[in-house]
Simulated assay, not measured.
Amino acid sequence: MGENIETRISDNHIYIRTPGRYAMGLAIELLNFFDQQIDYSVKNTGWKNGFGLNVCERYPVVSSNLTVEFETDGEELEIHLASGGLDSFADFVNLVQGYVNEQNT
C-alpha cells in the first residue's frame, strides 16, 4: 500500500485512517478477508458485486458470539462493536491488526 495506515483502538471501537486514499478499499479488503474466515459471516455482500460501500452506512460482520459493524467515510474506516464480549472483540482486533500490519509493509 505504501502509506502509513494509522490505527487506534478502544474497548469497543477500531479507528483506521488511510492517509492519501479512500478507506473504502481497505474496508472491502477486510470484509473479503472476514468473509473467507470460517468463524465469521459478512451480512451485506453487495460489495462483492463491485458496488462498493455506501459512505457512513454500517456493514455487519458476525460470529457466534460477536457482531461488529464496518463504516467508512473518506480516509476513515471505523469498526464498532455492536454486541458480544470484550474477549471476542479483542480476538477480532488482533485479526484486524494483523491484516493491516501485513498491508502496511
Rank of each mutant, 00 (worst) to 15 (best):
R58G: 11
M1D: 09
E71S: 15
A27E: 08
Y22P: 01
Y40I: 03
S64P: 00
R8V: 01
D87M: 03
N104D: 15
L26Y: 06
F33L: 06
G84C: 06
N4H: 12
T45S: 07
K48W: 08
E3Y: 03
T7N: 03
L86D: 07
V62K: 14
A27L: 09
I38E: 15
G52H: 09
I38Y: 02
D87I: 05
W47V: 07
Y99N: 04
F89W: 02
L30Q: 08
G74P: 01
G85P: 00
L77Q: 07
N4S: 12
L66C: 08
L66S: 09
W47L: 07
T45C: 05
I16L: 11
Q37P: 01
F51K: 14
N65E: 15
E71A: 12
M24K: 12
D35E: 12
D91R: 11
D11L: 04
V68R: 10
E78T: 13
N49F: 13
Q37D: 10
L53I: 14
S63M: 05
Y99W: 11
L77Y: 04
L30E: 08
T67P: 00
F33C: 07
A90Y: 04
L53P: 04
Y22I: 10
S10F: 03
C56H: 08
D91S: 13
A23F: 09
N12Q: 02
F92R: 04
H80Y: 15
V61M: 08
Q36I: 00
I16Q: 07
S63I: 01
G52C: 09
E71I: 09
G85A: 07
H13T: 02
G20L: 10
F92L: 07
W47A: 06
E57Q: 13
F51Q: 13
L81T: 03
E76H: 13
G50H: 09
I9R: 10
N104E: 13
M24C: 02
S10W: 02
N32M: 04
E6W: 01
D91M: 06
L77H: 04
S63Q: 03
T67K: 15
S10H: 02
Q97L: 15
I28G: 02
T67Y: 00
E71R: 14
W47S: 05
R21E: 14
E3S: 14
S64V: 03
S88W: 00
D91T: 07
N49T: 09
P19W: 02
N12Y: 01
G25I: 11
G2S: 12
S64F: 00
I14F: 03
L26E: 04
L31S: 07
Y59A: 08
V93C: 10
S63E: 05
V96D: 06
